[in-house]
């Protein structure tokens, strides 16, 4: 199969933004934390967009996949810390476990919830997230509500200096890499039959079936892909960066809401959208907290409402319509 490089042009603006973020963070003092936060929001949007944006199904329990990813890393480190010589391999095992666990959860949830549509799906996924959290707490799985704290194990496994570098630098780099990978997979799906099938089922699921599209299969593909990236993100941005995991934090529904806002701000189902949405959301959250501490949400809520009512296609959605028919069309997807 020959690969047409022009198909991947739309990655250029996405990767350019990620590179600029990295360079700003690396070279300007005091900017790394802000860039790390923006990278997290971009990655979150990019990962969630693969399911939410491409299928139109609203997974209100999305954060659960980040939660199990965080647990995956935490369990790998706490259980395997005594095997000396694994070194950085331990992190790789942790990332793999995070992917496996989020895949398994996605399969279980998908089997139940993906039979449902619309509001029923959204409510079912809220149920999964909350149910899973309370199961962990109630049955005292993985230390129950006390959570897992593994600063000491991080230090033991990687040495104090490396553990600190992992937490303050490499975890954020990993988040950027995850965002970049998620963008690549998004574009790859868009350019393959998967993307066309997802567009069809998002617009009209019954018509899609009559056109020969196995909608269940494609929904599951998008669901699992999106879940795996969430699991990785939990492992990197939560477990490695802050080596502890508490059920009420990693299953907090507000992260799902933030992800939805980012996708919507940028433009659901677009490639560049989650990046733009992540930047707008992250920057305004950051600066509002400085300018008007305590009032961020009061200002945010009406803005969100106005955007939903007046600009439902999001920034990149609108931009896409603008550049239709120009050369920019090849870069903005």
């Amino acid at each position: 199969m020959k690969v047409n490089p022009a198909k991947y042009y739309p990655l250029i603006p996405v990767y350019a933004i990620y590179l600029i973020m990295f360079l700003i963070g690396k070279n300007m003092t005091g900017m790394w934390e802000l860039m790390a936060m923006l990278a997290f929001y971009c990655a979150l949007g990019q990962a969630f967009n693969i399911f939410l944006g491409m299928t139109g199904y609203v997974d209100f329990g999305y954060v659960a996949f980040m939660g199990v990813g965080t647990y995956g890393m935490a369990l790998a480190i706490t259980r395997l810390v005594h095997f000396k010589g694994l070194g950085i391999g331990l992190l790789i095992i942790g990332l793999c476990l995070a992917m496996v666990m989020s895949t398994l959860l996605a399969l279980a949830v998908g089997a139940v919830a993906l039979r449902l549509r619309g509001a029923y799906f959204a409510i079912a996924t809220i149920g999964v997230n909350e149910g899973f959290r309370y199961l962990i707490e109630g049955a005292k799985i993985w230390n129950g509500s006390e959570g897992i704290i593994f600063f000491a194990q991080m230090n033991e496994a990687f040495g104090r200096e490396m553990a600190s570098a992992l937490s303050t630098f490499w975890a954020d780099v990993l988040v950027l890499i995850i965002a970049a990978l998620a963008a690549f997979v998004t574009l790859h799906y868009m350019r393959s039959k998967i993307g066309y099938a997802l567009t069809a089922l998002r617009e009209d699921e019954d018509a899609a079936k009559v056109m020969g599209i196995n909608v269940t299969k494609f929904k599951i593909i998008a669901f699992i892909t999106s879940a795996i990236f969430a699991g990785l993100l939990g492992a990197a941005a939560w477990a490695i960066k802050t080596p502890y995991v508490f059920p009420p934090e990693v299953f907090e529904i507000h992260y799902t809401i933030e992800a939805i806002i980012i996708v919507l701000l940028g433009g659901a189902g677009t490639l560049l959208g989650p990046v733009v949405g992540g930047l707008i959301y992250g920057l305004s959250k950051y600066y509002l907290a400085i300018i008007l501490p305590g009032f961020q949400l009061l200002i945010f809520a009406p803005i969100i409402i106005i955007i939903i009512v007046l600009f439902p296609e999001g920034t990149v959605g609108m931009l896409k319509n603008r550049v239709r028919g120009t050369t920019l069309e090849r870069y903005i997807v």
Binding site: K193, Y196, A197, T199, A200, E203, D204, A207, M211, G212
Partner: peptide, 22 residues
Amino acid sequence: RPFSSASVRENVAIGAMFGTLA
């Protein structure tokens, strides 16, 4: 029942992709 957000070309291509030639 068009797939509204997709272009005409993409709509018709979806037919080719999943029909007898799938």
